[in-house]
Computed example of a mutant assay.
Amino acid sequence: MSRIDESKEFIPVRIAVLTVSDTRGLAEDRSGDTLVQRLTEAGHHLADRKIVKDERAEISVQLRTWIADPEVDVVISTGGTGLTGRDVTVEAHRDVYEKEIDAFGTVFTMVSFQKIGTSAVQSRATGGVAGGTYLFALPGSTGACKDAWDEILKWQLDYRHRPCNFVEIFPRLDEHQRRK
């Protein structure tokens, strides 16, 4: 159940979009385009956008680069979450996570199941946190990107969403690093 508290002010977040593909360039990146369109229409800022090959090390390096960038609050990747040998995005994400958001994959599967039935079991969508940055790995299809944004991320990245949302806990994501 998604509820917006209109008495609160919207707080835009800075989102980087990463497409993982051996074959796509910006001109063919419909899933990346879908995410950029949706996040900007929602009032957020596109912090950066890149395409990298399906190589675990390359993906991890790009994620770490954005985690270290104070101008990036959230990273959403698309592609490489399936079951084939070249699908290494989930492993790259987990290489950098400090904490995994286990329920993100579960809720994504629930949303997908309503659209594509049992084929939803083939996705390994994941979410996590590192260095005070949220990271989400989505499948490469435009439909999956639409579903993840429209049904989950749109709400959780809106400070006005109740009963809780990801934005309101930004200041506490790295509190363990300040306790010394």
Results as ranks from 00 to 15, higher is better:
3 R>V: 13
4 I>T: 09
5 D>K: 03
10 F>D: 12
10 F>I: 08
11 I>F: 02
11 I>W: 05
11 I>K: 15
13 V>I: 13
13 V>L: 13
16 A>S: 14
17 V>N: 08
18 L>N: 04
19 T>R: 03
21 S>A: 04
25 G>T: 14
25 G>L: 12
25 G>Q: 13
27 A>K: 14
29 D>P: 09
35 L>I: 13
35 L>S: 03
35 L>H: 05
36 V>D: 14
37 Q>K: 13
37 Q>M: 05
40 T>R: 05
41 E>Y: 01
41 E>F: 01
42 A>V: 00
43 G>H: 12
43 G>Q: 10
44 H>R: 09
44 H>K: 07
45 H>R: 15
45 H>A: 12
45 H>G: 05
46 L>R: 08
51 I>K: 04
51 I>N: 08
52 V>D: 04
56 R>V: 01
59 I>E: 11
59 I>K: 12
61 V>H: 13
62 Q>H: 13
62 Q>E: 14
64 R>N: 14
65 T>H: 15
66 W>S: 04
66 W>C: 10
67 I>W: 08
69 D>A: 08
69 D>C: 10
71 E>W: 01
71 E>V: 02
74 V>L: 06
77 S>F: 06
77 S>W: 06
77 S>M: 06
80 G>I: 02
81 T>S: 07
84 T>E: 11
85 G>W: 09
85 G>N: 10
86 R>H: 09
87 D>T: 00
87 D>A: 01
88 V>R: 11
88 V>H: 07
89 T>D: 07
89 T>G: 11
91 E>W: 00
93 H>Q: 07
94 R>H: 07
94 R>W: 00
94 R>Y: 01
98 E>N: 11
99 K>G: 01
102 D>I: 00
103 A>S: 14
103 A>Q: 00
104 F>P: 00
106 T>S: 04
107 V>M: 12
108 F>N: 01
110 M>N: 14
110 M>Q: 15
112 S>A: 11
112 S>L: 03
113 F>G: 02
114 Q>G: 12
114 Q>C: 05
114 Q>F: 02
115 K>Y: 13
118 T>A: 15
120 A>K: 05
120 A>N: 06
122 Q>S: 07
122 Q>A: 04
123 S>T: 08
123 S>A: 11
124 R>H: 12
125 A>T: 05
125 A>M: 10
126 T>H: 00
126 T>K: 00
129 V>I: 15
136 F>V: 10
137 A>D: 09
138 L>H: 06
139 P>D: 03
140 G>H: 06
141 S>H: 05
143 G>S: 06
144 A>P: 05
145 C>G: 02
146 K>W: 06
146 K>T: 12
147 D>N: 07
156 Q>P: 00
159 Y>I: 12
159 Y>G: 14
160 R>Q: 11
161 H>K: 07
164 C>P: 00
165 N>Y: 10
166 F>Q: 03
166 F>N: 09
166 F>V: 01
166 F>R: 02
167 V>S: 10
167 V>T: 13
170 F>P: 14
170 F>A: 08
171 P>N: 08
173 L>Y: 09
174 D>T: 15
175 E>Y: 11
175 E>S: 15
176 H>I: 12
176 H>W: 10
177 Q>D: 12
179 R>H: 10
180 K>C: 10
180 K>D: 14
